[in-house]
Design a protein around this nucleic acid. Structure first.
Length: 954
RNA sequence: GCACGGGUGUCCGAGUGGCCAAAGGAGCAGGGCUUAGGACCCUGCGGCUUAGUGCCUUCCCAGGUUCGAAUCCUGGCCCGUGCACCA
């Protein structure tokens, strides 16, 4: 088949007949489906193609069920990648050149477009790149309304985003606060995972800095992850052999390790080094401990690491194993203690103070676990680490603060932690310090730190009321697949304030601080609304698009006449946009890949909730799974990809679409295996060719006078279509496809096998319905076949039939014949009969059928004694005695299967199929009723059962 | 750490209470076709048995619910994926 010709022919037809350019039609139900617009920076591979194809299938199916369908497309070009790429290409960076030349398949002579400017780069990628997304969409035959095409840097779009953020701000959802980020002091930039050479995935931990008053204005600073344990403090640890720094922080003087201040200076402003002192100078001193307002003693410890925290550690021997062991070791070593000039009696009087009750560990969990694990000294590093982890984890989840913790007594540890921290900070006894979870190194080679960005703008997704309202929106939405709803719910739970501005990148300037750019996940949340007017708004100059204009279009606020006059926009244009939004919204489905659930998809629901009224939000989401190639993750940089362009060229767009939808359901992980594809390609291809060959023999008209096999085929087509519709409604595209492809092929083959005359009308019924059902998946071939069948307009103006009449009895009857064929083959093989001379079929007698009917009606559970009781209530069965009991036993053995069977007249069916069977086996076939047998040399007849006639072959 | 998902025969993978010794494919073995190779077609691939069958042992491990479990529940072991400034 000449795929290329057919594809081009119909793509041209669709565009010149505006098949996928919907107009508002009052009375026709709208269906607006939208798939997350791509960032057009490379070649399109099958992973992308799957997402867009699934959306297209959903859209086309809805067209075929009578909806007015809108599916727009745009380009998300916001952010830094384009700028970074253009800069790298301008500098002649070889790695980047290679990526664009080899992976994105851009010829060298076209690089001039890429290096000219970010705008030119974007334009090339969208409109000229042979392997780009737009080229791919067109090749795949997607039903996109291109009149609405947009880029996120269009001037009108930017005004829309400004309106969006002004609206959010007016509701209090835009806030400004300090924000800790991973930061490279060398590059002077925040770093993401992809900027790192070491430490990817390591996060930021929040330490509490505790201030221990040494004298009037000088404090020793200890860092802790467990501020709630201040109530159990017994002493402070310092390293006697290192030098600590004295630093002015604000009005106070702090003492901590030098390494600490190097990091801390990125997090606070006013910080100034004053001097140094040795740890040993601090040993033995008394300091006023925060939280408990009590003096505690400074003791020496080797485990204090100047590179971790502050190099000073507060000691809570009740709950920190290392503190307990270090204290005990010091207490047991009088000579050492006295070498530091410590009062040994005072030292030995220090005892752990119970503060947390922990089930299974009592109220001194550190002491208990050290005893349990047999930890003797600080040198048991491994065991100490294990002990620490266990106690920390259990304490956090299950610990309860006890009566030594004042007002926190009885509170859970995980609650108390935050409250204690807050109280200490308020009393100026503590501060916050951010520390990386481990070593993080930037690609430039320098070690990263945490920097606190002052005045970062956020979208306040943590807002309780907003969250509640968004959860309500979500609860009314249809999430496909349904089991993902819980994922959304979980995301909504932990979703926190999201930074929304950056200093670099393409996009919309932040309206409240013009030098900043809204970051890409912030300007892609409600653009679906913009699509409804994108084709109209192009004629309005951007500068006229003040917030009031959008307020009118989307929210119906204000008076059209006044707005028209004030901003110089025609009333008719304003009205058209307002009407268009009102018609198309709410969005039926927002579609994207699963990995966007925690951000894009959720943000979109939140922001719709914030901005639009409940009836103008989103009705559902469709979440597409990943595509892997031969079991491995696809990666453009490793060349492990299949590009959609190449694939369409080799097997044709419709077959690509078919396989993308046929391997697994849309939300499941799809493993693309070339060999398997090739195998099923030839199978499917010959099926399609078979159908096309039959098209010339089909004739439109009333179907009448059907014989048994024809009735069966007609009925089977209807059954398949019904199941197809059921599956399509749930977006189970794979199941739907299987019904109307390989399964229907099997049916067709059986029918071909069975039929003895040609029915043109039935063939038309089959082919036309097949074309309509396959059209969402294989639109080009469907159109071609549709035309071959004599239709003039596009198949997408046809309708998929719904709720067709089917008759279980017809299927049941045919399965009797099919089963007989199977059984005959089996017996032939086992009995090693090559050419049967005669076949005898004995249909079970009337009383057995009655017995089955009786049991089917009355038997609740397949229990032998009650079955016999029921059966023996019938005199004619009772008369058969032990033989009847044997039959009952046989029936019960297969009861679960049999109870579903629909009773049919086996005698009549088999008698009617005699010619077929004798033709098939090339011998005489004799069908007799069990109790009227004339010839039964091996006495097989008695084995006849309902739905399973006995057989004798000669 | 938190969240979600998953462990099925040689391999990939379908299967969510009985129709399941478990779809489909790959692979392997035998046969057909062919000068040969490829492609294609047929048969078999847990064990024993059989004129269309019946039985035994199996779906990560251990328990449990049920007349009945690959499928439901509990515990354990193992493996993926995501976790925010990144589009």
């Amino acid at each position: 088949m000449d795929f290329k010709r057919i594809e081009q022919k119909w793509q041209k037809f669709w565009s010149s007949n505006k098949v996928f350019e919907p107009e508002i039609k009052k009375g026709k139900r709208p269906f607006y489906i939208q798939v997350a617009y791509p960032y057009p920076s490379g070649a399109m591979h099958i992973g992308h193609a799957r997402t867009y194809t699934a959306t297209d299938v959903a859209a086309k199916y809805k067209m075929l069920t009578g909806f007015n369908v809108l599916m727009p497309m745009g380009w998300h070009v916001s952010g830094t990648p384009v700028i970074a790429a253009v800069e790298a290409l301008q500098k002649g960076n070889e790695k980047t050149i290679k990526i664009f030349h080899e992976n994105a398949r851009i010829p060298k002579e076209d690089f001039k477009y890429l290096t000219e400017s970010p705008e030119s780069f974007v334009d090339y990628m969208i409109n000229k790149a042979k392997y780009g997304y737009k080229a791919g969409f067109k090749k795949l035959g997607l039903g996109i309304d291109w009149r609405r095409e947009l880029k996120t840097i269009d001037p009108q779009y930017k005004r829309f985003i400004e309106w969006q953020y002004k609206t959010l701000a007016s509701k209090g959802y835009i806030i400004k606060k300090a924000y800790p980020v991973r930061y490279c002091p060398q590059c002077k930039n925040p770093v993401g995972d992809h900027d790192l050479s070491e430490g990817e995935g390591l996060g930021i931990q929040e330490y509490t800095l505790l201030k221990f008053k040494l004298d009037e204005n000088t404090y020793l600073i200890a860092a802790t992850l467990r501020p709630e344990t201040v109530f159990g403090q017994t002493n402070l640890w310092v390293r006697p052999d290192i030098e600590y720094a004295k630093v002015k922080v604000g009005a106070e003087q702090w003492i901590a390790s030098k390494e600490f201040f190097d990091k801390y200076k990125e997090q606070v402003k006013d910080i100034e080094k004053v001097g140094t002192l040795n740890g040993s100078e601090l040993v033995g001193r008394q300091v006023l401990a925060p939280g408990i307002e009590r003096n505690i003693i400074v003791l020496p410890a080797d485990f204090c690491d100047p590179a971790t925290g502050t190099g000073i550690v507060t000691s809570v021997p009740s709950d920190a194993p290392i503190d307990y062991i270090a204290l005990r070791e010091l207490q047991q070593n009088q000579a050492l203690a006295e070498s530091f000039g410590l009062n040994y009696d005072l030292l030995t009087s220090i005892k752990p103070i119970p503060i947390i009750e922990l089930e299974g560990y009592g109220n001194l969990s550190a002491v208990k676990i050290c005893n349990d694990l047999g930890i003797k000294s600080q040198s048991d590093a491994e065991k100490l680490e294990e002990a620490k982890k266990t106690v920390y984890k259990l304490g956090f989840h299950k610990g309860i603060m006890n009566s030594n913790c004042n007002k926190y007594a009885g509170m859970q540890v995980n609650k108390a932690k935050e409250l204690v921290k807050k109280e200490l900070i308020e009393k100026n006894q503590a501060a916050i310090f951010y520390e990386l979870e481990g070593k993080v190194v930037c690609r430039c080679g320098s070690q990263c730190v945490v920097r606190v960005l002052e005045d970062q703008w956020f979208v306040k997704y943590s807002d309780e009321r907003w969250k509640e309202e968004s959860k309500k929106t979500l609860s009314g939405m249809q999430i496909v697949p349904a089991l993902f709803k819980i994922n959304y719910e979980k995301v909504f739970e932990w979703l926190d304030d999201k930074p929304c501005t950056r200093s670099k990148g393409l996009g919309t300037n932040f309206p409240f601080q013009k030098e900043l750019i809204l970051e890409p996940l912030a300007d892609s949340t409600i653009y679906m609304a913009y699509f409804t007017i994108a084709n109209i708004i192009k004629q309005v100059p951007a500068e006229k698009l003040e917030p009031e204009v959008f307020d009118y279009i989307f929210l119906g606020k204000g008076r059209i006449a006044e707005i028209s006059k004030k901003y110089g926009i025609k009333k008719s244009v304003l009205k058209e946009m307002h009407d268009s939004f009102k018609y198309w919204y709410p969005l039926a489905y927002n579609v994207s890949a699963i990995e966007l659930i925690p951000n894009h998809m959720s943000f979109s629901i939140f922001q719709h909730t914030a901005i639009f009224p409940p009836n103008k939000r989103q009705k559902g989401t469709l979440n597409l799974g990943m595509v892997v190639l031969e079991g491995k993750k696809m990666s453009s940089s490793k060349g492990n990809v299949v590009l959609i362009n190449d694939l369409c060229d080799s097997i044709g767009a419709d077959f690509v679409r078919f396989f993308l939808m046929n391997i697994v359901e849309p939300w499941e992980e799809l493993n693309w295996q070339q060999r398997e594809i090739e195998k099923s390609f030839s199978k499917l291809n010959s099926f399609v060719e078979l159908l096309f060959r039959n098209a010339s023999k089909a004739k439109k008209g009333k179907i009448k006078g059907l014989n048994l096999p024809e009735k069966w085929f007609y009925n089977r087509i209807n059954e398949r279509i019904n199941e197809y519709v059921q599956a399509m409604e749930k977006m189970e595209f794979r199941r739907a496809l299987q019904c109307i492809s390989f399964q229907l092929l099997k049916d067709f083959n059986w029918y071909e096998h069975r039929k003895n005359k040609y029915n043109k009308q039935l063939m038309y019924y089959f082919l036309s319905n097949w074309a309509v059902c396959i059209a969402p998946f294989m639109p080009h071939l469907a159109e071609e076949l549709w035309q071959k069948l004599g239709n003039r307009s596009s198949i997408f103006f046809a309708r998929i039939p719904k709720k067709l009449k089917t008759d279980q009895k017809i299927s049941a009857a045919e399965s009797i014949v099919a089963n007989i064929v199977d059984d005959l083959n089996e017996i032939k093989k086992l009995a090693k009969i090559d050419k049967p001379k005669k076949i005898y079929i004995y249909v079970c007698s009337e009383w057995k059928r009655n017995l089955f009917g009786l049991l089917k009606e009355k038997l609740q559970i397949p229990d032998q004694s009650s079955a016999i009781r029921i059966a023996m209530s019938d005199e004619s069965i009772k008369a058969k005695g032990q033989y009847a009991v044997n039959i009952i036993k046989k029936l019960l053995a297969k009861w679960s299967e049999l109870r579903e069977m629909v009773p049919v007249d086996e005698m009549k069916i088999l008698a009617a199929s005699k010619d077929f069977l004798s033709g098939l086996f090339e011998c005489d076939v004799i069908v007799q009723l069990e109790d009227k047998v004339e010839y039964d040399p091996k006495s097989k007849a008695k084995d006849a059962m309902p739905f399973k006639p006995a057989i004798y072959i000669e």
